[in-house]
């Protein structure tokens, strides 16, 4: 029983981290119908940025998110403006796969040149601290990451639901032509929306760098997990991706701890296949294409 509860705690906290990473991915799909294969690379870039700034300034990595978020916002907005916007609308969804994959490879190459392929991690000194609560271990960093995930998701929700920019995004998602007729600059909204999705990688990268060693090639594993999370949750549904991330985190931890680690990823993919067979749009995929 102790093992089950410990696995539940570990899985929930890990799920929170994946929810944070996947929220940007699903936001980008919701806004632009772009399956962003570079999201994992942006997370790794966020981790490197945080690491460099931490080594340089010694400011706490969680505080550095305030600095790295705008940087990644502009990186994302520039990617959309210069590389995705010029694509012909008719081919945009398919071609954006190639473009974002090229961006991922480019970022990987750039990071390899700058940082080499040595494994790095962010070490503020408390990265391995755990609280013992009733005999269970709760890792501090993962707990903070979990809280951060919730905070980021609430902020995203508020931006989308309560601000003029959010309304413009939702209008563009639901009907780009009508939105444009009503005065929404859909090009700018798309660039800002993509930037917002990529900006979440700043927080996700900081957390990722704190809990696991990384190098430029880490984005391959990340993107495969993020894609499965957003597909399971339903492409475009932020709430769905949160729940899917929790399912993945808790499921993987339980199978790893109680059965065998070799089955943990397989179990998750088996769940994914079953959900897609029964409900092809994912657990919470919107019936109306593009609704957030």
């Amino acid at each position: 029983m102790h093992l089950v509860v410990q696995a539940l705690i570990l899985g929930t906290l890990t799920g929170g981290v994946y929810a944070l990473m996947a929220s940007g991915q699903t936001l980008i799909f919701g806004i632009m119908k772009v399956i962003n294969l570079a999201q994992g690379a942006y997370v790794v870039l966020g981790a490197y940025l945080t690491m460099s700034l931490f080594q340089w300034t010694h400011i706490d990595p969680f505080l550095l998110i305030l600095l790295t978020t705008p940087i990644l916002f502009f990186v994302g907005a520039a990617t959309q403006w210069f590389l995705l916007r010029p694509l012909r609308p008719a081919d945009a969804t398919e071609l954006s796969l190639l473009v974002t994959f090229a961006v991922a490879l480019g970022l990987e190459g750039l990071m390899s040149v700058m940082y080499k392929t040595t494994l790095r991690s962010i070490q503020p000194g408390y990265e391995n601290h755990s609280w013992t609560i009733a005999g269970y271990q709760v890792n501090e960093v993962r707990f903070y990451a979990f809280l951060l995930s919730i905070a980021m998701l609430v902020i995203l929700y508020l931006i989308l639901q309560k601000t003029k920019f959010g309304r413009a995004i939702r209008a563009t998602v639901q009907n780009p032509m009508s939105a444009q007729l009503l005065g929404v600059n859909s090009n700018l909204v798309s660039a800002f929306g993509f930037g917002l999705g990529v900006a979440t990688s700043a927080a996700a990268g900081a957390v990722f760098g704190l809990i696991t060693p990384f190098n430029p090639g880490s984005h391959y594993d990340l993107i495969s997990r993020l894609l499965t999370v957003v597909i399971l949750g339903g492409l475009g549904s932020i709430g769905g991706s949160v729940i899917a991330a929790m399912v993945m985190g808790v499921g993987a931890a339980l199978v790893s701890a109680l059965s065998a680690p070799v089955w943990s990823d397989f179990t998750f993919f088996a769940v994914l296949i079953i959900v897609l067979l029964v409900r092809p749009r994912g657990m919470f995929g919107a019936k109306v294409r593009g609704a957030l």
Partner: peptide
Amino acid sequence: YPSETADMTPVVSA
């Protein structure tokens, strides 16, 4: 464990 296992905490908890 497979090579893509990034998080070892569940394994080590067992």
